[in-house]
Amino acid sequence: MTTSAYKMLQVDTKKAVFTLFTGLCKGCGLCTQKCPVKTLDWSETLGVYGTPAVQPKNADDCTGCGMCAMVCPDCAITIERKK
């Protein structure tokens, strides 16, 4: 497994841990459009093609719904909901 090779961008939000694997994110932005609370936005961190990756701009807004992870064609996002 090459999992460890992926660099992670993690954001600890109120309801979940948002993890973005920069080595997988191609910066397509599909997730940003699907975020029901419109909190996902371009990040300073760059993705695999050198384009901006994404991250919640306001951590507290994230509800941990997992929509962004579901619509990511590259499986670059995981959402781990807090108990």
Partner: peptide, 14 residues
């Protein structure tokens, strides 16, 4: 073989 070879935002990935 990931990231896969499809373009950013390509539906094939989904």
């Amino acid at each position: 073989t990931k990231p896969h070879k499809f373009c950013p935002g390509c539906g094939h990935g989904l």
